[in-house]
């Protein structure tokens, strides 16, 4: 039972990692959570969390498949997770809204990093 579970966690963490990286870009934060809904946290924090998620993904892949297959599985999972995240952003951005709200900060100091141009359409 551990094998499928580790695979799911590895894939999910890869997806989450890319989601955090995407949210660190103003353009994609706007897509997911327009600035009147939630203020973005610091970009550095998002990217750090994203890196941690990708590291978790690597650990799970290596735990499941060992040092030879693990990194290969991880790299290929990344190549699949990234486009899946992109399609989520394009077609179902609201799926990520709850994640963005969890991460959001009301601290106005960080809101200046958002460009207040016309909202990006899907």
């Amino acid at each position: 039972m551990a094998d499928p579970l580790l695979l799911i966690v590895a894939a999910g963490a890869a997806y989450l990692g890319f989601a955090l990286f995407a949210l660190s870009q103003s353009r994609h934060w706007q897509q997911v959570a327009p600035s009147h809904v939630a203020q973005p946290p610091q970009k550095k924090a998002l990217r750090l969390l994203g890196s941690l998620a990708l590291a978790l993904s690597l650990s799970c892949a290596c735990l499941r498949d060992g040092p030879a297959f693990g990194p290969v599985l991880w790299l290929l999972l990344l190549s699949v997770a990234a486009p899946l995240l992109v399609f989520t952003l394009s077609w179902r951005p609201h799926w990520l809204r709850r994640l963005a709200q969890r991460l959001a900060t009301s601290d106005p100091r960080h809101s200046e990093s958002i460009k207040r141009g016309p909202m990006q359409r899907g």
Binding site: F21, H28, A82, P83, S90
Partner: peptide
């Protein structure tokens, strides 16, 4: 890196998808 605008004109959307598959699939 995460850009894909499927609802734009075909030319733009196909370039986005070309870049997306090209860049994200590049290592593989």
């Amino acid at each position: 890196f995460f850009l894909f605008r499927p609802k734009k004109q075909l030319q733009r959307a196909s370039l986005d998808l070309h870049n997306l598959t090209g860049v994200l699939g590049l290592p593989f």
